[in-house]
Each structure stands twice: as structure tokens, then as C-alpha cells.
Computed example of a mutant assay.
Amino acid sequence: MPGGYIYLPTGEFIPHLRVQHSRDWQFHGCIYQSEFLNLDQGSFRKGDTRCFFAPHTEIGAAF
């Protein structure tokens, strides 16, 4: 979708700036398994997306 991806398991929009290049050309997502507090970045709930990997594309790629 324009500007990023919709991560279907959570319904979360992942902007291109947060997408990392997938070296195996597959999609991967990392999800927090428990509550997490990071004093620099704030708190995260169980199930929040931590990282997202996608195959490189020319359109909107931020890799």
C-alpha cells in the first residue's frame, strides 16, 4: 500500500521508514511476547510489532 505495509496479524500500518530489507526475499515480523518498557522509546504491549522485514522494492523503498 502507498507509504508502507499493512501487517495482517495485527492490522498495523508499517511505514517504509520502519521496514528492513529481507535478505531471503520473504516477509518477516517480530512481535513482542510480553509487556516491555524502554525508557528511551516508551512502553510496548504484548503483540505490538517490534520489527518488520520485506523484500526490496523500487517503489518507496527506504533501504
Rank of each mutant, 00 (worst) to 15 (best):
D48T: 04
G29V: 07
Q26C: 10
E35A: 12
G11L: 06
I14S: 07
E12Q: 13
F52A: 02
W25Q: 10
S22N: 01
D40Q: 15
Q26T: 08
N38M: 08
I14F: 04
H21I: 07
E12Y: 04
H28C: 03
E58R: 08
R45M: 11
C30T: 08
E12K: 11
S34I: 09
V19S: 02
R18C: 11
Y7W: 13
R23Y: 08
T49Y: 01
S22E: 07
D40F: 12
F13H: 08
F44Q: 04
D48G: 09
L8I: 11
T10Q: 09
Q26I: 02
R18V: 06
N38R: 09
T57Y: 01
Q20R: 14
H16P: 00
R23A: 09
Y5E: 04
R50C: 12
L39S: 12
H56G: 03
R45C: 12
G60V: 05
G60N: 01
A61R: 07
L39A: 12
G11V: 04
S43L: 06
R18H: 14
I59V: 15
C51R: 13
A54C: 01
K46I: 10
F44N: 08
V19T: 01
H21V: 10
H16N: 15
A54H: 04
T57W: 01
P9I: 07
H21Y: 06
I59T: 13
V19K: 00
P55N: 02
G29R: 02
L17T: 15
Q26P: 02
W25Y: 11
I6D: 05
G29W: 00
Q33P: 02
C30E: 14
S43C: 07
E58W: 03
F44H: 14
F44W: 03
P9W: 05
N38E: 13
E35S: 13
